[in-house]
Amino acid sequence: MWKALLYKEWIKTRWYLLLALLVTLGFAGYALLKLHRAVALMGAGHIWEVMVTRQAVFIDQMQYVPLLAGLALAAVQYLPEMHRKCLKLTLHLPVPALATLGVMLAFGVAVLAVLFGLGIALLAAGARPVLAPELVGNILHAALPWYLAGVAGYLLGAWTILEPTWKRRILCLLMSVLLLRLFFLAPVPRAYGGFLAVLALLSLCAASLSWLSVVRFMAGRQD
């Protein structure tokens, strides 16, 4: 049954995942291309100086890409469930509803982890030949909250989409927007420090919110 559930999620999302892979890696690759081009044109010294003295990280253009990827995955995975009323059928499978939801969310978080892990690895491997480890670290520390926002965006997106009533959905949306703002407050790289681990934990706890929406759905709440 678990395999069948995972396969269902895979069928729903496979083309989107290919697109997300191309877009997220494409943006990371484009940022690296710009960095290498700047090093070639201006010299490594100038780029290092800008990165040290002005805290530039050269990947600003991909700031919201992981968030959009996470939100879009939530939409691709859960909008059809709600729109075509498939969720009702899914919840009637001979598996506890909580476990069903858990598998669906775990699938989403896992594929995002792979997707974002590849992005982080690409950034690290692409920047290292021209930058010192400290500067590569700055880039990765700037990108980590953005990638984490992608995971949080996915889980909060799932919570909002699975919510059966519009009144409550607007509340979910408002709370999600404010919570996601937390991932984009860094004035300089490495600004989050230990708080990033707390944010990661809170992001994972956000998976429990979807269960509230499902409970309300099963209770027959609707507009």
């Binding site: 937390l182 407050l185 860094a186 004035p187 300089v188 600004a191 989050y192 420090g193 230990g194 708080f195």
Partner: peptide
């Protein structure tokens, strides 16, 4: 608050 005018960290 999560940011401050006295430092450049993000923390509660």
């Amino acid at each position: 608050s999560f940011t401050s005018s006295s430092d450049r960290y993000v923390k509660p």
